[in-house]
Amino acid sequence: MTELVLTDLHKRLLNDFQRDFPLSERPYQAIAEQLGVSESTVLSALTELSQQQLISRVGPIIRPNHIGVSTLAAIAVPQAELETVANTISRYPEINHNYEREHELNLWFVVIADNNEQLAAVIASIEAETGYPVLQFPLLHDFYIDLGFNLDWQHVG
């Protein structure tokens, strides 16, 4: 895939429309009007950004634990086994992200489920399959007011 050269339109779409997405019949038309371009130009630019994996979606960030339940979890895995164990965990559809971090507790993932029983079952299954205990760090309080991610274009590229 050829790399997308970011135009001013791409940059504005990436930075200026992370919140307050229009809740009107033709939201992309409303954005297009703000940018002085056509609706189809906005739609193709967003499609390009999505195809290039620069955006994951246009959509909502849903407050955690209001539909379904979730927890951050971590396990300590010897380096030699890390990739295998990580891939085992990633295969569960209930895992929505899974990162290696620089610590003895080195594999951190988020489990999302419809209810507590399902969540507990997934954790138990991961423990049984990997042979390592899973530490759970469920959210107690969310202090973060999400206004989006402010992009500094000198950093991008």
């Binding site: 992370q18 919140r19 246009v58 960030i61 989006g148």
Partner: peptide
């Protein structure tokens, strides 16, 4: 809904 809009992939950016 905490916010609705373009969700960027900061790693790719």
């Amino acid at each position: 809904i905490k916010r609705m809009g373009v969700i960027v992939k900061h790693r790719s950016l």
